[in-house]
């Protein structure tokens, strides 16, 4: 029996679809048992969404009313909906737009940027921008989340294989540090360092003063960044027991650079501590003026 799979892209960069392709040889094996019934890179998606879909992988956040409609339509036809990638799971980088007023943003783009000479905000036959960037689960029920920007190909393959075997996939409940091979922190660094600075190899990046989101970020990516000397930026969202990923790391830094951290402006706060999760973070909850529909 073949499993009917659909993929869909909302506000996003298609990177998650590329990651799907990046599963490589594993993809060939998967495709044997799978019928790809709806997927914009390979199948015509102009028709209405076909019925009886088993699994839908939905990439991207919900940014327009069109995204919202499509998500709902897909949900109707699908047994198991997967929020695919950081945007879909937590709002993604797009969510940082929530630190600004959406309407002002639209006005700015259509009135002030050079390319938009007409200075008219189009209203007909185009999707309307929602007041805030949303994650998929804000709009429809989501059965499973594959986090990451982009998700790790191994994890994508594992989740789909598990589903094909009729089992429920599981995400790691731990944090990046659990998979990170670097030597651990035992001292508080005396100052913060920027990403362009060169870290000492094989030593915990946080202990060297780099802002690594590892401790509060969900494991499952094999710590690909940190093991190569790049601090974790937190693309996989909060780990299981973290109340809020960004606030948790802010707290860790309060010990290091009290004065600096206490003065971060919101865009910096959001883009540093909640780069992929702002739309679903407590920071966004706190913000006034953005009402979720």
């Amino acid at each position: 029996m073949t499993v009917r799979i659909a993929t869909m892209g909302m506000a996003g960069c298609s990177g998650c679809h590329i990651a799907l392709l990046d599963t490589g040889v594993a993809l060939l094996d998967l495709l044997k048992d799978v019928e790809l019934v709806y997927s914009y890179p390979v199948v015509d998606t102009k028709n209405p969404i076909p019925p009886n879909i088993d699994v839908a992988l939905i990439e991207g956040s919900i940014r327009t009313d069109h995204d919202q409609e499509m998500a709902k339509a897909m949900r109707k036809q699908t047994k198991f909906v997967i929020a695919f990638g950081a945007c879909s799971a937590h709002g993604g980088v797009n969510g940082l737009a929530n630190t600004f007023n959406a309407q002002e943003g639209v006005e700015y783009v259509y009135h002030k940027t050079i390319l938009m000479a007409q200075k008219v905000v189009p209203h007909e036959n185009v999707p309307q921008v929602l007041p805030a960037d949303l994650r998929l689960s804000d709009v429809v029920k989501v059965d499973f989340v594959i986090p990451g920007c982009p998700p790790h190909p191994d994890e994508i393959a594992k989740v789909i294989t598990t589903l094909l075997a009729g089992e429920t996939p599981q995400l790691s409940k731990k944090s990046i540090c659990d998979e990170c091979p670097l030597e651990r922190l035992t001292e508080i660094p005396d100052q913060l360092r920027r990403t362009h600075e060169i870290p000492e190899p094989e030593k915990c990046l946080l202990s060297q003063g780099f802002l690594c989101m590892g401790p509060a970020t969900r494991a499952g990516c094999n710590a690909e960044c940190t093991r190569r000397g790049m601090p974790c930026t937190g693309c996989r969202g909060p780990s299981e027991t973290v109340w809020d990923q960004g606030v948790a790391m802010l707290d860790a830094l309060a010990a290091m650079e009290e004065d600096q951290v206490a003065n971060f402006k919101l865009p910096r706060l959001a883009s540093t501590f909640a780069r992929y999760t702002y739309a679903s973070s407590k920071l966004d909850n706190l913000r006034k003026g953005v009402q979720k529909p």
Binding site: D251, A254, E258, V261, L269
Partner: peptide, 20 residues
């Protein structure tokens, strides 16, 4: 106690930045 103060300043900043 110093950490308590530092954390409170962080929270106050977060709230202020969020418009609260």
């Amino acid at each position: 106690s110093r950490m308590a103060n530092s954390r409170a300043q962080v929270v106050r900043n977060v709230i202020r930045q969020s418009g609260g």
